[in-house]
Nucleic acid binder design. Structure first.
Lengths: 203, 203
DNA sequence: TAACCTACCAAACACTTGTTAGGGAAGACT
DNA sequence: AGTCTTCCCTAACAAGTGTTTGGTAGGTTA
């Protein structure tokens, strides 16, 4: 028996997540560039240099925050896409899943939205670009399937509609506060009601 | 006669606008905090210190950029609101006007969206908060008028709808490129088609 | 021509930034 | 008991930050 070393690595991992959570909070609130490592350390109750015991650099914190978020996001998305639902049901499930992710990873989503544009250019954050492509593909194909099936209007520019739906969903992270009066599912329901009655073919 | 001094002050003002335009471009692309005055000076073909002949500080450049944008924006909005149109026509006009402003002040809009949250806290940028209040009031009252008149659906949370419409319109600045295949009016038309058929009462 | 103004440059300033190196206290393990 | 490991602190570093000061080429005015 390797003399219980497990509890220590999980304790270390827990601390790591804890620090990443507070870092994500500060990044989301002040912006990545405006956030100094000293501010993060303050919020964590330690000094700037101590952060480097846990992480290689400020940038690697950002990377881990975004990677963790995207991994979870695609876990949910792949489950939806693999269920092979109809286009309308797929869209509903994707939107609902998105609001759940906003609920769970509010800070990470806010960071993603603010910094994505500048980060994708760096090779370190190439995974952002790949995620973007998969994201676009999933949404566009769902919309096109819906148009082909006569469930969504055909007189709209699909790419414009895609951007419309995408932005509409994700900007919610900028004002959403967990524990507010609306649950993620309730917000999703209302959003879908607005979006679908514009996209769905009139009956 | 004060010995023609006019041409000089207008030439100076023109140069000022020119520098503010390039500054706005860099701010929008890289983010305000990540933008150094040296980068701005580079893009303008001069040295960092030379900028201080024209402006007091980096922050005052940002302030002037946002003030100019908001002044023009409210010029357009007030014209619309003063016309006393019906709620649906008001909403259409506001959306169309917004896309025109995005077309004209793409960089400023992008900056506003990215930095607004952190700036409103500073007393120097209190005008942002006031603009925000007027903005919300204009949109909310239009939506409420529409609900009261039976033109907009009454089963939706008005505040949620407001945020939905607001965000949907302004995030367009993040992907919109002037001179693209869609004119501002065309984009407005398509957006309105999507939004209204979700908001308008079914016929 | 001489005085002046405009618009920039050159060089430095004080300060903040991310990051590193060495040390030490408290507990875990043998 | 003593040794090791974990986790943080202290103190400093070099690079980059916004800004200031003094100077100056070139055109305008008197």
């Amino acid at each position: 028996m390797p003399t219980k070393k497990k509890p220590q690595v999980t304790a270390a991992a827990a601390r790591r997540r804890e620090l990443l959570d507070t870092a994500a909070e500060v990044f989301a609130e002040q912006g990545y560039n405006a956030t100094t490592v000293r501010k993060i350390a303050d919020h964590a109750g330690m000094l700037a240099g101590s952060l480097y015991y846990h992480f290689d650099s400020k940038e690697s914190m950002l990377e881990e925050i975004l990677r963790t978020f995207l991994d979870e996001l695609w876990g949910g998305y792949d489950a939806v896409l693999g269920a092979e639902l109809g286009p309308r049901e797929t869209l509903e499930a994707l939107v609902t899943e998105s609001f759940r992710e906003i609920d769970r990873h509010r800070a990470a989503v806010a960071i993603y939205q603010k910094e994505n544009k500048q980060l994708v250019a760096q090779e370190r954050f190439a995974f952002l670009a790949e995620s973007q492509r998969r994201f676009e593909k999933a949404w566009l194909s769902t919309l096109e399937r819906g148009v082909a099936a006569g469930v969504f209007r055909s007189d709209l520019d699909v790419r414009l509609t895609y951007r419309f739906v995408r932005d509409t969903v994700w900007v919610a992270a900028s004002w959403y506060r967990p524990g507010g009066q609306h649950s993620p599912e309730e917000i999703a329901r209302q959003y879908l009601s607005m979006v679908l009655d514009g996209i769905a073919v009139r009956t």
